[in-house]
Design a protein around this nucleic acid. Structure first.
Length: 458
RNA sequence: CGGGGCGUGGCGCAGCCUGGUAGCGCAUCUGCUUUGGGAGCAGAGGGUCGUGUGUUCGAAUCACACCGCCCCGACCA
């Protein structure tokens, strides 16, 4: 019963067994004791992930779909901003890290491994060294710049204390991009492109992200912003001007080759800092009292400019217009893809469960058959399922024999944006019910009207 | 890495103090009745009590060691 149907745009999430009776959706009725924060609890209860070891998770079907949706949005915005996707391995050679001097500097967070030949390897916590090595092997001239290479790959950082589920795991999926430019001015333009791409991608996921000046940490460099999503359970204290919450998001038609500085400046002119770099005196001097926001936030991305920190020791040089070789100016740009799943839930849930923003929802529609086995109800559901799926909607069809109450509770828990409820009682009047998960609004209408309403929304 | 706590059927827990051969709720399976916001009755299956060593006639229970996990703090996408 694998369906082969025309798809709109997305190819990564394939259409196949979406009948709940044939799916794998292990829901938990009770909350596991180990989960303390709401996103972790909901991820376990809704069957998104399973913990396999401290800070290490298996992604179950529903969670994996969300992860893929997020990854795809990140990919689209990176490509739009002119970055080029590659895929680097998880394991790296220790020698590469000795070139930059970080093999000894990185400490116990880096998982070090020996293969059967006693060769020293490591499970990559980040990829500056490797991408610099790739770049220097092929690029010789400034004419090939600017260049931005990115990949989305599993990282491992042996955190002392993993916690909060996927928000602070040891193994995590990260998109990391690396820009290469001939001089500082060009590097700044690359930085700006990523800054704008980040504003767009987080907004597309239904998040309000605020770029804040931040410390550069072990990555190095002297210019950095963290993209913060406000949440009470956030790990960092943050301080900013309230107007940053409602700034317009650059449109899809943004020309990434144009001067983006005005967009950046409009934001960086307003005070925004994480607690690490916070200056209370400046905060009070620059921000009127009624505009001061001090809150907690989750870091979902960070952008760095670090110049020649890696290119100089690793000899990644290109010839400039004058024929002289200079080390390239670099920046790196990370997005915590797996962390975002938790961050989105922190930002969007209620007492009944998750409330997925439509663009990242594992399925767009949950179809609830209130009386599986009843010929008329089954037929109506089959019809709806086929029509919605043909129109490009991802539909999860609950065709199980559970009782209605249990089905409603499950649908609310997994948080699909729309629920289509079909039962014999309504069908007698030719009506089915549509429920919006976010608002809770329910509406009765004909099957045709429901199909129209749900598919018009793209 | 410092401090605290917890490991008992799939999940949540009781039993441990005071040693006597494992129990409750939910879930699962079967049957019947039910079916518009987490149904009822009847029956059934499922546990090396985290691991090891010791004490004892006897250990889930006492002692020691180890492993795993969680929470607070210091550190990080």
């Amino acid at each position: 019963m694998c369906l082969s149907l025309p798809r709109k745009g997305r190819n990564l999430v394939s259409v196949s067994f979406m009948r709940l009776s044939r799916y794998f959706l292990p829901l938990l009725r009770e909350t596991p004791t180990e989960a303390q924060i709401v996103s972790h609890r909901l991820m376990l209860r809704a069957g998104l992930v399973r913990q396999e070891a401290a800070g290490i998770y298996a992604w179950l079907p529903l969670g994996f779909r969300v992860l893929q949706k997020i990854e795809q949005i990140v990919r689209e915005e990176m490509n739009r901003a002119g970055a080029v996707e590659i895929l680097m391995p998880t394991l790296q050679s220790a020698d590469l890290w000795r070139e930059s001097g970080r093999y000894d500097a990185y400490g116990k967070e880096m998982l070090r491994i020996k293969d059967r030949h006693e060769r020293e390897l490591l499970y990559g916590p980040t990829n500056e060294e490797m991408v610099t090595e790739i770049f220097r092997s092929y690029v010789r001239s400034y004419k090939q710049l600017p260049m931005n290479l990115y990949h989305t790959q599993w990282k491992f950082r042996d955190e002392v204390r993993p916690r909060f589920g996927v928000m602070r795991g040891r193994e995590f999926l990260m998109k990391d991009a690396y820009s290469f430019d001939i001089d500082q001015a060009a590097a700044r333009r690359s930085y700006n492109r990523m800054y704008v791409a980040y504003l767009r991608m987080f907004a597309r996921m239904g998040l309000k992200s605020i770029p804040m000046r931040a410390e550069t940490g072990p990555i190095g460099g002297d210019l950095s912003h963290e993209f913060i999503v406000l949440a009470e359970t956030g790990e960092s204290g943050v301080f900013c001007h309230k107007d940053l919450l409602d700034m317009p998001i650059p449109g899809e038609d943004t020309d990434f080759d144009s001067d983006l500085e005005p967009i950046i400046k409009g934001r960086t002119d307003l005070y925004a800092a994480t607690e690490d770099v916070h200056d209370q005196a400046r905060f009070e001097a620059e921000v009127p009292e009624d505009k001061r926001l001090s809150a907690r936030g989750i870091e979902v991305g960070q952008v760095f400019y670090f110049g020649t920190k890696y290119s100089a020791p690793m000899k990644a040089v290109v010839a400039g217009p004058d024929g002289k070789e200079v080390p390239v100016e670099m920046g790196s740009y990370g997005v915590g893809v797996s962390r975002l799943v938790g961050a989105i839930i922190e930002a969007s849930h209620d007492d009944a469960g998750i409330v997925w923003p439509e663009p990242v929802a594992p399925f767009g529609v949950g179809l609830v058959n209130l009386k599986a086995g009843d010929a008329k109800t089954d037929a109506a559901c089959d019809d709806l399922y086929a029509r919605l799926t043909a129109a490009g909607k991802d539909v999860l069809y609950d065709d199980t024999a559970e009782r209605p109450g249990a089905k409603f509770a499950s649908m609310d828990l997994i948080g699909l944006p729309w629920q289509v409820v079909v039962g014999p009682r309504g069908l007698e009047k030719g009506l089915i019910e549509i429920k919006n998960r976010k608002t809770g609004a329910k509406e009765e209408m004909s099957v045709d009207a429901a199909v129209n309403k749900l598919t018009l929304r793209g």
